[in-house]
Design a protein around this nucleic acid. Structure first.
Lengths: 183, 183
DNA sequence: GTCCGCATGTAAGTAGTTACATGATTCA
DNA sequence: TGAATCATGTAACTACTTACATGCGGAC
């Protein structure tokens, strides 16, 4: 999702500063679909303000730059709904750099394959742990259902990687050219 | 994966023209991780040629622009391996516009939710059909294993959507604000 | 005493998308 | 007759990333 809509999404839940928006991209419920650094968030908030989709209040702080607390406006909520109602493109075309790499497992060093798979397994385990622990009580709310989706997908990928880790490593050790079996 | 590496990946399997590379982004085994239109492919091939990573031969055609058949060089193969050995970033952070939208199911029209979910279910079914029918014979090659990964992931997402279609539609009908249950 | 968290922002650069430009052939 | 496939490419634009700029306070 584009950065302006992502910011609007976060602000639809509660007012926040640019810094807090960034944090919620990393930790909160939005960490599964949004991303962006300060270099994109601050300009985005500026544009949203200019368009009247958000407003902000300055909270003075000692020894730190003043904090700007952004709040979504009614127009902002309408804009968010409008954006979300635009026909969803074929986003979830599953584009994965890991898969791209594994496709060429036969031409790559076995050590590299092993390392990357193990790192990814750990990553998925951490994601799942996070999703499970901080998860809602299965209350059927939208955020909870979306969380469950994440659990489903990450579990599937984790299981697959664990089951096929050895297969990929063997391919790398043997050196099987990917071209032979390509469609 | 960036466009230059994607092109190199396709050419590592067989020589191809820019037009054919585009097709393989849509249909071939690369359709799960690569994408890009002519506007990015042709400039990328130009740069790869300048860097000596690919070469091309012109195949004259009547009544059509001459076809340029690109071929990967040894340096190109080395560059591909090098690129694939660069530490894979946290790419597979599962970023999904569908999930972003469903997170706000309570604020959106039920019709929209229904349509989008149904479209996505069909999309996954088509993907799975394609992966199953044109799939390798379970020969354990890298492309085959990667195909299997695709089947695993798409199946998981399909099942989830089918199981929770009604839940999301009900949320939209009732109008449950997402904010209430947010982390 | 060095790194991390808090807090904002700008400037330059990269990479990719979209629209345009051209044009024959084949299929419905 | 209209759309899709084949075939290449450029120009303008959009959007995002990375690096820079500043600086206190607290933890290790």
């Amino acid at each position: 999702m584009d950065i302006k809509t992502s910011c609007l999404g976060v602000l639809a839940l509660r007012p926040a500063s640019g810094y807090e928006i960034r944090k919620s991209f990393e930790e909160g419920p939005f960490s599964h679909f949004a991303e962006g650094g300060f270099g994109s968030i601050y300009p985005a908030l500026g544009k949203l303000t200019a368009e009247g989709l958000v407003t902000f209040e300055v909270e003075a702080q000692e020894k730190r730059p003043d904090k700007k607390i952004y709040q979504i406006t009614e127009a902002g909520r309408r804009a968010l709904v409008e954006k979300l109602c635009e026909k969803a493109p074929d986003d979830d075309k599953y584009k994965s750099d890991l898969l791209f790499m594994l496709f060429f497992a036969g031409q790559l060093p076995a050590d590299h394959i092993r390392t990357v798979i193990d790192e990814r397994i750990e990553f998925y385990q951490a994601k799942l742990a996070h999703l499970t622990e901080c998860g809602g009580a299965g209350d059927g709310s939208a955020p909870d259902l979306v969380r469950e989706f994440g659990v489903t997908v990450y579990s599937a990928m984790l299981t697959y990687l664990q089951d096929h880790r050895q297969d990929f490593i063997k391919l790398a050790e043997r050196g099987t050219p990917a071209a032979d079996a390509a469609e």
